[in-house]
């Protein structure tokens, strides 16, 4: 990465700017997902967040996960969501009562949780840097596959069964009989 290094602090500005933009988009998108009055808009905002997440994964040097994220989430899961929206709602458009009556209850809960997490994170990782430049040792796809098929083989199998069960379960549940 063509590095523009700050003289005082060896921080890659381009990365930081990229991160900031994507993060802002993601947060706005996420807020839209939970506040939008239109289900389809919410779903599209979710696409934004998920794509943003994929970009963040790239910044974290996890290309394979990013690609998978795009394929699975942005591709498959979102289509599923849109189908779900279409199949369960006749009208596509504005809907007044998407929220619970006492939805404001969520605000203090979320804020308290955010407060606790932020406090702990700032306390714990005050200025811990991610390795970058020469120190960085990006995780190769080979390392990931070694990890999946060696120490985490059993979870992998279990996951295969979960997916199988989910496929069968989804068919059984959604089937008109």
């Amino acid at each position: 990465m063509s590095a523009v290094v700050l003289a005082t602090d060896d921080i890659y500005v381009a990365q930081n700017i990229g991160f900031g933009i994507i993060a802002a988009v993601m947060i706005v998108g996420a807020l839209k997902v939970v506040t939008s009055k239109n289900v389809v808009h919410a779903a599209l905002s979710l696409v934004l967040v998920l794509a943003g997440a994929a970009a963040q994964y790239l910044l974290l040097a996890a290309e394979f996960v990013a690609v998978t994220q795009v394929l699975v989430y942005v591709g498959a899961v979102m289509v599923l969501f849109l189908f779900g929206v279409m199949l369960t709602r006749a009208k596509l458009g504005h809907e007044a009562d998407l929220n619970n009556r006492n939805h404001l209850l969520g605000v203090p809960v979320a804020l308290v949780m955010l407060g606790v997490i932020v406090w702990v994170l700032i306390d714990g990782f005050e200025d811990t840097r991610l390795p970058q430049g020469d120190q960085a040792s990006p995780i190769s796809i080979q390392a990931v596959s070694d990890s999946i098929f060696k120490p985490y083989l059993l979870p992998f199998w279990a996951l295969s069964f979960v997916l199988l069960a989910a496929v069968i379960g989804a068919i059984v549940l959604a089937r008109k009989d």
Binding site: I11, N16, A23, V49, T88, N100, L114
Partner: peptide, 28 residues
């Protein structure tokens, strides 16, 4: 890059998601 950038982003998204789970009525 500070690791906290990512961790805080995760925290914000998490809490927004929690709010959504609590506040939303529509199952989707």
């Amino acid at each position: 890059m500070l690791i906290n950038n990512f961790l805080l982003l995760g925290a914000v998204l998490f809490c927004i998601g929690v709010y959504g789970v609590i506040a939303r009525k529509n199952a989707v």
